[in-house]
Amino acid sequence: MQLRVAVVGQPHGLRGEVRLDVRTDSPEQRLAVGSVLETDPAEAGPLTITKARVYKDSWFVAFDGVTDRTAVERLRGVALVIETDEEEDRESDSWYEHELVGLEALDPDGYTLGTVTGLEPMPAQDLLVVEEPDGRVTRVPFVKEIVVEVDIDDSCVVIDAPPGLFSEDEIVVADGSDDSDDSDEPDESGRDA
């Protein structure tokens, strides 16, 4: 199985260095100098890392044979991938994006919130992308306090969302009446309408 390690971003400087959009939890291992990475699309690689550094939480690398800004610009958007066994180096509470996409998102009471359509890596925490039944896209912080359960076998995630994160249905008064009907209220003159 192929897993994305990073996506080539914008050129940095004039000598072939490039910023990466990192998609791995272990960039020090995957992006070490000397690493040879396959690419998607395959015809762009393989690429060998000759220089790697971190500056202000961003990864910058240089590739063997890619020596100027123009050559790097042609690699923009290319994914760096590795072949891996799905269980290799896996933590008990980690999931790959392909495992999450398509799972039903439920609230703690079992009501449907939507369907997981992606996972966006962010500096602080990843965001679980959920498409609600009305088509609205909601990004949910992928932390244990909010995404309380991931059940791959039952094809669902349980999300204990804070108020306002997901769109809500029209509020119905407890007795079943719609509180927008005020025909029994007196008009401004004090008489019944």
Score class of each variant (00 low, 15 high):
residue 189 S to T: 15
residue 75 L to R: 02
residue 94 S to T: 14
residue 4 R to Q: 09
residue 97 E to Y: 04
residue 87 E to T: 13
residue 185 E to G: 06
residue 111 Y to G: 15
residue 97 E to R: 10
residue 103 L to W: 04
residue 46 P to R: 08
residue 48 T to G: 00
residue 51 K to H: 08
residue 60 F to G: 00
residue 163 P to A: 10
residue 142 F to D: 11
residue 165 L to K: 04
residue 166 F to I: 01
residue 3 L to N: 13
residue 37 L to N: 06
residue 89 D to P: 02
residue 9 G to D: 04
residue 104 E to W: 01
residue 179 D to R: 08
residue 96 Y to V: 08
residue 73 E to S: 14
residue 71 A to N: 00
residue 37 L to K: 11
residue 102 G to L: 13
residue 140 V to N: 06
residue 37 L to D: 07
residue 107 D to Y: 03
residue 187 D to Q: 07
residue 156 C to N: 13
residue 186 P to Y: 04
residue 124 A to L: 10
residue 184 D to E: 13
residue 154 D to G: 13
residue 177 S to V: 10
residue 63 F to T: 00
residue 105 A to I: 03
residue 183 S to P: 02
residue 70 T to V: 11
residue 91 E to W: 02
residue 192 D to G: 13
residue 2 Q to E: 15
residue 106 L to C: 12
residue 55 Y to M: 06
residue 44 A to V: 02
residue 43 E to S: 15
residue 108 P to M: 13
residue 103 L to Q: 12
residue 17 E to K: 01
residue 132 E to C: 14
residue 55 Y to F: 05
residue 138 T to W: 00
residue 190 G to N: 08
residue 117 T to E: 15
residue 34 G to S: 01
residue 121 P to T: 09
residue 16 G to W: 03
residue 126 D to E: 12
residue 6 A to F: 08
residue 137 V to Y: 00
residue 22 V to K: 02
residue 146 I to F: 03
residue 128 L to A: 12
residue 73 E to P: 02
residue 71 A to F: 00
residue 186 P to T: 07
residue 93 D to G: 03
residue 77 G to N: 11
residue 100 L to C: 09
residue 87 E to Q: 14
residue 58 S to A: 08
residue 190 G to H: 03
residue 153 D to N: 04
residue 89 D to K: 12
residue 78 V to L: 01
residue 40 D to N: 13
residue 16 G to L: 05
residue 128 L to F: 03
residue 141 P to V: 02
residue 31 L to G: 12
residue 51 K to D: 04
residue 86 E to Q: 05
